[in-house]
Design a protein around this nucleic acid. Structure first.
Length: 283
DNA sequence: TGCTCCTGGATACGAACAGT
DNA sequence: ACTGTTCGTATCCAGGAGCA
């Protein structure tokens, strides 16, 4: 069986520091399903006069919010109706501070990328002769593509053959969807909408709009989790339980993974209670 | 099992805002 | 300046998920 994974990262910057960071997201499905998704998105773009523009978290505005909300329906439908499609999200929490050997920011990012691809999809439970083409955004790793490729060479499974490709996110709706979902995750999880403008006691229209959209994304993921796993609650920033069976890592339609390095200390200064209520968690 | 985190809903009050 | 609306805070209440 052949699959394609589109994966991307977001909220990796370290200035300012946000509690939830290094958010990695990946959509896995078949090439054909992705082609259909592409067509659906293109037609929706036409309807909304958004054809020439790229889908991007940072491009959401009051003027195009209807397009983005409609887009969420397309995405939900895509994930729900195509059995091969699954979504994975990994992130890190600064409350669990890594205490191992320090390394450069970019190297850390590669290592985490590796962890994400190695463990989040549960490849070890895939059937024999599974072929996966990993499509990563060329833009974000442009200068380090070679280095990342080297890291990913050690991604070896007996049952899964992996091929890595770098593509331009401008040309891939699936990658753009990843950017959107992760952008919303970071915005919501870090309470960015509460980063009030100087002297303001209320959030701006734009902040409220983005907070509402993030919530729509949250509810989308919650619905998917509820439909396919029967769970009654959904935490965007907690590891999804496996119910004691490791094959869940492969089978689940949607999984969230809070990546906690083995070598870590708990840093309560990042706890929710260390910040005022309704405040952005940044340092 | 108890704890924390994350979420929901309802209600009430007052402050901040937008439009006129 | 006045008005009506929206937003934020402060209460309660509730429960699920995951972790130690």
């Amino acid at each position: 069986m052949k699959y394609v994974i589109y994966a991307d990262e977001a909220w990796t910057q370290s200035n300012p520091l946000y509690r939830y960071h290094c958010i990695f997201g990946g959509l896995i499905s078949t090439e054909n399903h992705f082609k259909v998704l592409d067509k659906q998105i293109k037609s929706l773009k036409k309807q909304h006069n958004y054809s020439s523009k790229e889908i991007k978290w940072s491009r959401i505005s009051v003027q195009n919010i209807n397009f983005y909300n409609d887009l969420l329906q397309v995405v939900e439908n895509f994930i729900n109706t195509t059995t091969e499609t699954k979504y994975r999200q990994m992130f890190m929490d600064r409350a669990y501070r890594y205490t191992g050997t320090p390394c450069s920011e970019i190297e850390t990012q590669f290592k985490i990328y590796y962890q994400f691809l190695k463990h989040c999809f549960g490849f070890e439970h895939a059937t024999k002769n599974t072929y996966i083409t990993l499509k990563l955004d060329t833009h974000s790793s442009h200068y380090h593509r070679h280095q990342l490729t080297e890291y990913l060479k050690s991604l070896v499974f007996s049952n899964v053959k992996i091929k890595v490709e770098f593509i331009d996110s401008k040309k891939s709706c699936a990658l753009q969807i990843c950017d959107l979902l992760m952008g919303a995750a970071g915005y919501h999880g870090n309470k960015i909408s509460w980063d009030l403008l100087p002297g303001k006691k209320r959030r701006t229209k734009n902040q409220l709009m983005k907070a509402a959209f993030s919530k729509n994304v949250y509810e989308l993921l919650k619905r998917i989790d509820a439909t396919h796993r029967g769970s009654k609650a959904f935490n965007w920033f907690e590891t999804t339980g496996t119910g004691g069976v490791t094959v869940a890592r492969y089978n689940h339609k949607l999984r969230i993974w809070k990546f906690i390095p083995t070598l870590h200390v708990y840093d309560p200064s990042w706890e929710d209670s260390a910040f005022p209520k309704n405040a952005v968690r940044k340092k």
